[in-house]
Computed example of a mutant assay.
Amino acid sequence: MTRPRLRHLAFVVQDAKRMAAFYCEQFGMELFHTDPDGSHFVTDGYLNLALIQQQLDGDVATGFNHFGFQVSEIPPIAEKLAEAGVPRPVLRGGDRPFAEYRAIDPEGNWFDLSEHGFLPPGLAE
């Protein structure tokens, strides 16, 4: 891979199960992961769409949340981001195996970085 590739989009939704069913039924996407919080992850085999279940006790509104790039190596990208004046990416917490690092652009939009990609094991990257 010579340049980062956009491979992941994430939206906070009110009913992740219903939204996943919609994308699977209407566009032939496949459900490949469900989080304990009810978030659903679907794919078309290339792009991963995260449907993050909105939490009533949370402060994150519905709508676009973040996107993610698959990259060959994190360190050179982290260095370029630091040189561009934004914070270095930080290791993501939690148990989601889809992205290793979280970063922000100059206007504060979140994006993920992953060396292994955003699709589940066994699906071609």
Rank of each mutant, 00 (worst) to 15 (best):
T34H: 03
S39E: 02
R102N: 12
Q55C: 11
A20W: 09
I104E: 15
F32S: 07
T2A: 15
P89D: 03
E83R: 13
R102A: 14
H40E: 12
E100N: 05
F69D: 10
D44I: 01
T2E: 15
E25Y: 05
G58E: 11
T34A: 11
A99W: 08
T34V: 15
G117K: 02
P4V: 08
P87D: 03
V12D: 03
F41H: 08
A50G: 13
R102L: 14
P87R: 09
F64Y: 13
T43M: 07
M29Y: 02
D95V: 08
H66C: 08
E125C: 11
F111H: 08
G94A: 01
P121M: 02
I74C: 08
M29G: 02
P89T: 05
A99L: 07
R18Q: 15
Y101R: 08
V71P: 09
F98Y: 13
V12E: 07
V12F: 02
H8L: 03
F118E: 07
G122L: 09
F11V: 05
L113Y: 04
T43A: 04
D95W: 08
D95R: 08
A21K: 15
Y46A: 14
R3V: 15
A20G: 02
Q55R: 15
P121W: 08
Q14S: 15
V71A: 04
G28N: 01
D44V: 09
Q54F: 02
P106N: 01
R88Q: 13
V13I: 03
P121G: 11
Y101H: 13
P76E: 09
R7D: 08
F11W: 12
M29A: 09
F27V: 05
P76M: 05
F27N: 04
F41S: 10
N48D: 00
V86I: 07
C24E: 13
M19N: 11
A16Y: 02
G122D: 07
A16L: 05
D105A: 10
N65F: 14
A20Q: 07
R18K: 15
W110N: 14
G85N: 05
D15L: 04
G45I: 08
R96S: 14
E79L: 10
I74G: 04
G38Y: 03
E100A: 01
N65W: 12
P75Q: 06
V13M: 00
F27P: 09
D44T: 00
I52Y: 10
K17S: 12
W110A: 11
G85P: 07
F69C: 08
S72Y: 10
F27I: 01
E79S: 13
D35V: 10
G58R: 05
L119F: 02
Q70N: 09
P36N: 00
